[in-house]
Design a binder for these strands. Sequence first.
DNA 1: TATGAATGAGCTTTCATTCAT
DNA 2: GATGAATGAAAGCTCATTCAT
Lengths: 175, 175, 175, 175
Amino acid sequence: MSTPKERIIATTFELFAKQGYNSTGINQIVAEANVAKASFYQYFKSKEDLCVEFLNVRHDYWFNELNRFVSKEKDMKLKLISCFDFLIEMNQKENFRGCSFLNILSEIPMDNVKILSVIQNHKKDLRNYFSELIKDSGLSDHIYLLFESSIIESQLFRSNELIEKSKKIIINLIK
Amino acid sequence: MSTPKERIIATTFELFAKQGYNSTGINQIVAEANVAKASFYQYFKSKEDLCVEFLNVRHDYWFNELNRFVSKEKDMKLKLISCFDFLIEMNQKENFRGCSFLNILSEIPMDNVKILSVIQNHKKDLRNYFSELIKDSGLSDHIYLLFESSIIESQLFRSNELIEKSKKIIINLIK
Amino acid sequence: MSTPKERIIATTFELFAKQGYNSTGINQIVAEANVAKASFYQYFKSKEDLCVEFLNVRHDYWFNELNRFVSKEKDMKLKLISCFDFLIEMNQKENFRGCSFLNILSEIPMDNVKILSVIQNHKKDLRNYFSELIKDSGLSDHIYLLFESSIIESQLFRSNELIEKSKKIIINLIK
Amino acid sequence: MSTPKERIIATTFELFAKQGYNSTGINQIVAEANVAKASFYQYFKSKEDLCVEFLNVRHDYWFNELNRFVSKEKDMKLKLISCFDFLIEMNQKENFRGCSFLNILSEIPMDNVKILSVIQNHKKDLRNYFSELIKDSGLSDHIYLLFESSIIESQLFRSNELIEKSKKIIINLIK
DNA sequence: TATGAATGAGCTTTCATTCAT
DNA sequence: GATGAATGAAAGCTCATTCAT
């Protein structure tokens, strides 16, 4: 089939994204991954550890998908709009579950530096992504901020309305 | 001293804002509120119920504080900037704990309509708040979106940097 | 409306018969009887006390209904059969909930003499009832035993089959 | 010593028979079985589950004991009487605790089909037991009914009087 | 490497009862 | 006579983790 570690990660990927961090127990993970409890703790010394791994995997997955999606466009401005369309696609695929990183940010104690820094790095990379795309740091941060609220508002209202609104705002900003 | 119900709500207010919903147990609440466990369940039929009550109290508190803070300014544009300064004040007061409503949004199962709708209503009110302040629905939504990301990014990075950046963006937008 | 005590007894009558003793909490009783908790404990010093009262009320109710039903027949043998038809009527009315007395017997600790003796007296009265109807103590006990199992088996299988069988047996016995 | 599961079942066997279902808490079971609470829930997914297991174990135990006891007699009629003597032995051994199956029948909500059907099957087996012993279905049901009331009445009055009476009745029936 | 068995501490919730007025 | 407020104890159950092999 595959190695236990792979199965754990695949299962975690699905469950954390779907149910969130705190609502997903180790029991459920090992059960659905068909792995012994002790095997789990061979690869991950704690649930926190698994969380870090999950966030790393998610980071790679998410940026890959984004790049795949955006690379269809050649023009910078179209690429930009395409980023927001990517959110719409993700909302449909994942049923408006929002951003895994921000979700977990709300679920961990404030002093959990280990996880916090992984989340921060993800968002720094995203901010950089826009900055490299746009080459105007004032504008790129502006768009980064609209991108962030687009994710959250669409999660909150289970609707892409404010993503569409953001797209219109941006079109005006960069015309 | 005060009534048990008052003590429960006060303690909950503090603990939910500080630690989040899932990390705060009924045990801790009743212990710190000096209330018998059964007394708790006389006033709140479930933890979910308490959550709704908390969100309502928080809603009133938050908008009161916002209004108090913003009313110092008379000019609309200054009022607008003042909203973002309010975030800075709150971050200092509450140690960058972010938005209670969005935090709880991440902690509940997606199908918890009862809590979800309370959160949605809070944000609708906020969106209206800007809309009434600005009287230009395109612009007001734009600012609402920047406001939302300002909260989240400052929570994530424990820094007011992007709040300040938003202020600058807005000053440019409305000049 | 009526006095609190009456409402408590009426509600208890319904709930104990429907749900059983242990599954019916004081909370539910006072809630459905629209009575304050403390009022309850003014009339009944404990749940056990209420149980005794319930059994007494039930005793009167049950024998009254039995007599009313059986008195339609004049002939002793027909009266006897009528007793078993009464069970069928009760099963329909109370949805095969069986004998309140035997049900509570199973729910109390073995050393609860207070309740136990009330139950014993009820069944002694029933045994006497048959004995006075039949005037042949060997036969009357025989029928009492068939009557008892008729209640229980019909409760267990939610069916009157074995009541009907008992009737046939008895018709053969007394012909 | 023995495995936790074995100790749980042994303890449950004792406590359910002695105190009944509702009066026996998981806490007491795990305490007396010297087992961690979480271990309990590794083997039984709920108390209801444990109840089913208990009834199955009890079913086997009870019929084994009955067969052991009855097999001392060779003649069918003596075997029959022996069944009732078995009740007397059980009453002495278990201090008139009655039938575990009928006791639990009184303690569960009427719509608990899972437990109900286990109880029904036990009694169906008993009814069959008599039917195979006697080969006269009219008579065997008659005796089954007397057997059932014998258990209950002896439980209620903590006395074997009505068991003895049943024996006499039966001797007359089959002579 | 891989595992099934076992766990202590904690969860949310409900029980029958008493207090103060 | 009547009540709303408050309670200690216990209920059934789940958590992340570790042990022994």
